[in-house]
């Protein structure tokens, strides 16, 4: 159970998050959608403190952390409970796929190397990258890099996995493999927050959808409720625009 309370973030005088309250149950896959610049990515980045909000609190399994405190110990502890998958993969360039996954286990969790190697290999297997273990990021396609990044985040056994537009930086033909990987891990019971512009995907994989606008949660419900029956005008307009674009439905 993860509870976020009164999360506020400003950049100068531009309020990006305006008092977000959110309860996430274990196993929830929360899809976060909304127009550009409404703070979807900022929300994720505030949760693991890559950005420091002005106000806010998060409770992970009963332990409360202040998000605005600038406390180094708390920051590290909170980050160790969350995993993040970035839009631009951000793999460690000078490490092989396997070493990328091992890195956090060895450096942060102080796991013996051999054990970390086995565990990392297991995570790479889970995302179907075993045969690329010895390759460096520059040898891998965007989709493959993102799958390694997912394995890297999963290896740390996060209580909450944050996915920040994991397919936006990919060539269209590579989107499918990453979405399939995400769908796979979603079905394994990980608690996830997923920011994505792949509406069809969010609809299929999320157990709950949140529509952000102007730093506030405008819609919150099951995919069916939010996509088919939005209550707010803002969400209706947004979906109308999306339908105009007539996105081809992705296939797996």
């Amino acid at each position: 159970m993860i509870q976020i309370r009164n999360l506020k973030k400003r950049f100068r005088n531009n309020t990006v998050l305006d008092g977000i309250d959110l309860d996430i149950n274990e196993g929830d896959v929360v899809g976060i959608i909304g127009p550009s610049g409404t703070g979807k990515s900022t929300l994720l980045r505030c949760i693991n403190l890559l950005e420091t909000p002005e106000e806010g609190e998060i409770t992970v399994d009963g332990t409360a952390y202040s998000l605005s405190a600038h406390d180094r110990r708390q920051t590290l502890e909170l980050r160790r409970q969350t995993g993040m998958v970035f839009q631009r993969f951000n793999l460690f360039e000078r490490k092989t796929a396997l070493e990328n996954v091992m890195e956090g286990l060895v450096t942060v969790q102080k796991m013996p190397k051999e054990e970390a190697r086995m565990l990392a290999a297991g995570e790479l297997e889970r995302v179907g990258m075993t045969e690329w273990s010895g390759h460096y990021p520059k040898h891998l396609s965007g989709g493959q890099q993102q799958r390694v990044a997912i394995a890297r985040a999963l290896a740390m056994k996060p209580k909450l996995l944050l996915l920040d537009e994991p397919t936006s930086a990919l060539d269209p033909e590579l989107v499918g493999e990453v979405l399939e990987t995400i769908k796979d891990i979603a079905s394994q019971g990980f608690t996830m927050m997923l920011v994505s512009h792949e509406m069809n995907f969010v609809r299929k994989v999320a157990t709950r959808v949140i529509f952000l606008d102007g730093g506030k949660i405008v819609e919150d419900g099951t995919p069916r409720e939010v996509f088919d029956n939005p209550r707010s005008q803002r969400a209706k307009d947004f979906f109308a625009k999306m339908h105009l674009l007539k996105q081809p439905e992705y296939t797996i």
Binding site: N48, L50, L76, R79, R80, T82, G83, M84, F86, R88, F89, N90, L91, F92, E93, E103, G104, T107, V108, A149, R152, A153, M156
Partner: peptide, 13 residues
């Protein structure tokens, strides 16, 4: 690349 430093932070380093 800043992204790698962020990734390192995100795994808790």
């Amino acid at each position: 690349d800043r992204g790698q430093i962020e990734a390192a932070s995100a795994v808790g380093m």
